[in-house]
Design a protein around this nucleic acid. Structure first.
Length: 382
RNA sequence: GCGCAGGUGGCAGAGCGGUCAAUUGCACCUGACUGUAAAUCAGGCGCCCUUGUGGCUACGGGGGUUCGAAUCCCUCCCUGCGCA
């Protein structure tokens, strides 16, 4: 087994658990955020800086690295860890999210979480619908390369092959992240495909990398349960939970509660693509061990700093005269040496250093936040 | 001094007799963003008023023509280029 997951404490107050996820490249103390490094980089930061921002593990992307620079190049460079100078735990997402994000997500201008701005949950995707730019078949998905326009096919075998060449410690089964505005009939059909693909992935492993299967089923209880049971029955080292997780914290909690009872509790559970600050305690209490999210880095590049008690939009002119650090309680290197005023100026001047400083701080802030949650579990507070 | 071209909202720049409080871009102000485009999207952006087929003040200054002018005429001021 390529990884070893040890649960060191289970909360008596909630589903939260404390653990150590041991990989060939080091350990992850769980629960943990896994910041996103899609193109083998935490955007704007060096790997040393990502580590200094308390990142324990990162997740890179199969689809994007397949396009650029191509897994062969990464493999020839000594594998993903060496290539990106990150001698620490790494995951790769399977490309399943791109089936959605470059497909229906792009067509409808929606993310995987439904929201009021898109008219809530109205159903616009029927059973046999296809996105415009991606063709989803039972065998896999046909994409049009955003790099050179050529047609590109990724199915479970292709995804596994790419991920094995990349060499992350933990890899994910190829799935379809389902769109939030789909009819149940669509989700059912998609789930059959995702399950078929999961089995192919589980059966075609050629390396010692840990492989996580992904539970789908959108916001339908019967489908989530069915998916959890099926994915649990296969030869996976851990689980991913993907797709639509509801509009509210309560929804997310509910959906996770449908799934987890059907998963082998000794294996790690990774929640895909969720992790706003206000989500984190909730999902940890629901029993999630790791989760990835673009929010700290993505928002950072747009000028948002996460701070105790909320967030600051540093693009606002009011911050130009603000001499205080981003967060009064933060002990990160950015808060030690830089003012809100300076960062606001850099943003208005279009200087990339603003993004670096905010990315660093946000990651440090998020990771510290999760660190405190681990302490709370340890001390029995949650 | 003469000739030509111009002076429009924070800036740039449309409009050239009515439907213009004035296209558009930038800037500015709100908000959105959850398995990553440094993207994008939504709304606001003269003043007053709770509202509106609302009131007021506005397209360099002043004066005209007209039912009606940012748009036409006269005059003054200013800017750029050319010639003296």
């Amino acid at each position: 087994m390529a990884i070893k997951f040890t649960i060191t404490k289970k909360s008596k107050k909630s589903g939260a658990r404390l653990g150590i996820l041991k990989t060939p490249n080091g350990i992850v103390e769980t629960p943990s955020l896994v910041p996103v490094a899609t193109q083998a980089v935490v955007k704007t930061l060096t790997s040393e800086e990502a580590a200094a921002a308390k990142c324990q593990a990162l997740i890179a992307n199969t689809f994007h690295l397949h396009l650029k620079p191509g897994e062969k190049i990464v493999k020839a460079a000594g594998g993903l860890h060496k290539f990106m100078n990150w001698p620490r735990p790494l995951m790769t997402d399977s490309g399943g999210f791109q089936v959605f994000s470059l497909g229906f997500g792009r067509d409808l201008g929606v993310g995987k979480i439904p929201s009021a701005s898109f008219g809530g949950r109205k159903t616009v995707i029927d059973k046999n619908a296809q996105p415009q730019k991606v063709k989803i078949t039972d065998g896999g998905a046909y994409f049009k390369s955003p790099v050179d326009g050529r047609e590109l096919f990724i199915g479970p075998r292709e995804s596994m092959k790419i991920q094995e060449a990349l060499g992350a410690d933990i890899i994910f089964a190829f799935d379809e992240c389902t769109p939030p505005l789909a009819a149940k009939s669509y989700i059912e059909r998609s789930l059959e495909r995702t399950h078929r693909w999961a089995k192919i992935c589980a059966d075609s492993r050629k390396t010692g990398q840990a492989l996580f299967g992904i539970v789908q089923g959108s916001n339908f209880r019967d489908l989530r349960e069915k998916s959890a049971q099926f994915i649990n029955s296969l030869n996976f080292d851990g689980f991913g939970i993907g797709g639509d997780l509801g509009e509210s914290k309560a929804d997310t909690k509910k959906i996770i509660s449908w799934i987890l009872p059907h998963l082998d509790e000794s294996k790690p559970r990774h929640l895909l693509g969720i992790g706003k600050i206000e989500d984190i305690e909730n999902i940890v209490k629901s029993g999630i061990d790791t989760f990835d999210c673009t929010v700290p880095t993505h928002y950072g590049r747009r000028g948002i700093a996460f701070v105790s008690g909320g967030k600051l939009d540093l693009r606002k002119s009011v911050f130009l005269k603000d001499k205080r650090p981003l967060d009064l309680k933060c002990d990160c290197a950015v808060c030690a040496d830089y003012s809100r005023g300076y960062i606001a100026h850099l943003l208005k001047a279009g200087e990339i250093t603003a993004m670096r400083l905010l990315t660093f701080h946000n990651l440090y802030f998020f990771n510290s936040y999760v660190e405190k949650i681990r302490e709370k579990i340890k001390s029995g507070k949650i």
